[in-house]
Write a protein that binds this DNA or RNA. Structure first.
Lengths: 221, 221
DNA sequence: GATACCAGTTTGGTATCCCAAAATGGTATC
DNA sequence: GATACCATTTTGGGATACCAAACTGGTATC
């Protein structure tokens, strides 16, 4: 594993796990010493994370991207477009056995499963569902959108009923997909995405004060 | 202007103008001497162009991405999803005067306008139309998709009737948008994208032999 | 003639050095 | 006490040195 991939992966994990707070400043020298790499791989990693939207430029320096409510709402619209398009492609495919893999993902969650795992499976559901479309661009769009969302979605983990509700909705989407009912599947998926967004934005707006107290930058819509 | 931006911009232009052929190998040292920059900015530029899909890794080295027919077809599907979503958002907006700017773009083309300019305006039409949606993600998706398409679209420039037909379709889309007729506008846009793809793929499939003879890598669908 | 092998070269990955600009912190001035 | 100013430090951008791996071209072997 190259140093660049190492730094990129570890830094991404730290950011997504909120170990580095949204809005926090980053210096190349700090990353360098933190991960024991030189500046060349550090800079490469930063450039890639910039295109993922996880870090941004603040004048000359680097900043961990703040959680941006307006952005979250826009991402929901974007997701709706690409995920529904992907799902319709999948519904049009003859072989529906491919959804078994995703069904198995959902099956792997029960009451004993830790919430973090529910969270991860919830994201992977959407990513893997998009992959089934066979369209690389739709797939990457969904994957990247979920990456951007994932820091905010951590906050949703505390709400157990939300996780359960999402799980049920995922099941319903899969069922319609398996039957090839494209319109119904699309309707369910749209509603799911819009509902998730509403819960997320509400939850975030309520927590904004607390998040700011922890030093996290949260930009209003 | 920083060296990194310089190298990135110039290298992108060379690739898009087919001055460096699709499939051609790139060495960091060559770029370094070609643009009079050191490897640091060269490396940064390559990393960015990689995320744009214009260059890719070939084992350890760098390669100008080949023109990939399967990819072009997938991009068309992707475009349809994001452009239609963006257009529907725009149709829902109260203020329709924003389309004037785009109308003016189309107006700027007449029989005396060089074909390259028609080509550029044709791409910008889609990009600027997406920008009107106000959704940053849909906008970037369209812009990036058009960038990926633009090398292939150069080949279409030779067909004057295709340019004129696209221009008429653009007009019709704008007209429906101005009236807020979302469904009609969406239908026209979808048909336009699908039609463009068909013409492009047909044209490319026919030219494949000639392109290969010029040393361009063209990957089949 | 084909092939296995080896020395020399090239190349990307990494580390390190230099620099100008920006941030910092202390100090003098009002 | 606030502020303007200056020396110092820090930082990102760029250049370069070094290395290991990959590639190249030629040669010896069969």
């Amino acid at each position: 594993m190259s140093q660049m991939q190492n730094v990129e992966r570890q830094l991404r994990e730290m950011i997504l796990a909120l170990e580095i707070g949204p809005g926090e400043r980053l210096t190349e020298r700090w990353i360098e010493s933190r991960f024991g790499a030189s500046r060349t791989p550090v800079r490469a990693a930063l450039l890639r994370l910039e295109t993922e939207g996880l870090v941004g430029r603040d004048g000359r320096g680097w900043t961990v991207s703040p959680i941006n409510l307006a952005e979250l709402e826009q991402i929901a619209v974007y997701r709706e477009a690409v995920e529904v398009a992907a799902l319709r492609l999948t519904c049009g495919q003859a072989d529906k056995s491919v959804v078994d893999v995703i069904e198995a993902m959902l099956d792997s969650c029960d009451e004993n499963t830790p919430r973090e795992e529910w969270h991860r499976v919830g994201m992977d559901f959407h990513i893997e569902l998009a992959r089934l479309s066979g369209n690389e661009f739709l797939f990457r769009a969904v994957r990247d959108a979920m990456t951007r969302l994932s820091r905010a979605r951590w906050l949703e983990v505390r709400d157990e009923t939300a996780l359960g509700r999402a799980w049920l909705e995922h099941r319903a989407i899969l069922a319609a997909t398996r039957l090839g009912q494209a319109d119904e599947a699309a309707r369910l998926l749209s509603a799911h995405i819009v509902g998730s967004r509403d819960r997320l934005v509400t939850s975030l707006a309520n927590d904004r004060r607390g998040l700011r107290a922890r030093g996290f930058a949260v930009v209003a819509a």
